[in-house]
Amino acid sequence: MAWQYSEKTKQLFMDAVHGKPGTHLGEVDDPDGLGEHGSLACGDAMRFTFRVKKHPTDPTKDVITEARYLTFGCTSAIAASEALCRLIEQGHFTPIQALRVQNRDIVEFLDGLPEQKIHCSVMGAEALESAVFNWAQRRGVDLAKLGVDIHADEQDEGRIVCKCFSMSEPYLRRKINELNLRTIPEITNAIKAGGACMSCHHIPGGLQDLLDEIWGADKKLLPILPAGMSNLKPEAPPKRSDGQALSPYQFAKQVEKIIEQYVRPMLQRDGGGVEIVDIKDTLVYCRLEGACSGCAAAGQTLRMMIEAPLKERVDERIRVIQV
């Protein structure tokens, strides 16, 4: 895939690697705040340092005067690091104010980032946050008292959900909320979780389950396929590749079983239901009931919540027809 970076991103990257005056490559000696994020094994990592002008009496009134970074990563990771330092210095922020700089500010500063590179901007925001926590420790500022969320619940290492990128459940929950991530691809683009082996997508307690729990109420507004699949119990799909076609009776039983086990409970959560009207070959005629019957998203429900699991588990030729 060819590069789709904005001119601004390319320029910041080239300026940075050529060490142009005014760029922020490097480290502040004896910094007042130091934060790191990422790891070499994961493919990108950043060390962010800053210096403050110390307020004589009230450390919360310290002002950041200088910000520097070192980054291991791709073109956009380096450009995002440079962007972060510029935003921070331009703002003359106190460290606590600096926490307001979010990944989307970095994206905006770069005139946009390709979707799959959003995680580069998130890395910048994370490193900044960890540097501010570090500053608070050094200056004896109790952030929790000031109402800053310091993610204390993440201190105990939570259950690891994404093993490839070592991401814990509390961290994922916070990020899903903070960044308003609604789908698995959005999670992967923003923080990389689920982007390598993908085995954490639909397992119990996996990414989709987290999404369901957090956004449960809005489920119908989402692309529904993953939501549907998440409730499936981990069970080997029936073998349909052994060269022997199911008899019509077995086929119908199989369809009924999948609907009963996986589809109905899901629809019932929303006050809906489904009835199988008839089956002809691989055409399954269904009637939606209850809340589902009048729902504007009925067509989608049929396709994603009924047809998809049937295709997956019984026969990929299945077509569901709404009655």
């Binding site: 940075a16 490559l25 790891s39 291991f72 814990s168």
Partner: peptide, 29 residues
């Protein structure tokens, strides 16, 4: 060389990895 200048694992002055490179290396848990 220019990317290594930017890399947190590299000591550009000595042109070798930083002695503390290992500290950042492992994935956070």
């Amino acid at each position: 060389a220019s990317l290594r200048q930017v890399s947190p694992y590299w000591d550009a002055a000595a042109n070798r990895p930083r002695p503390d490179a290992d500290r950042l290396i492992q994935p956070k848990s």
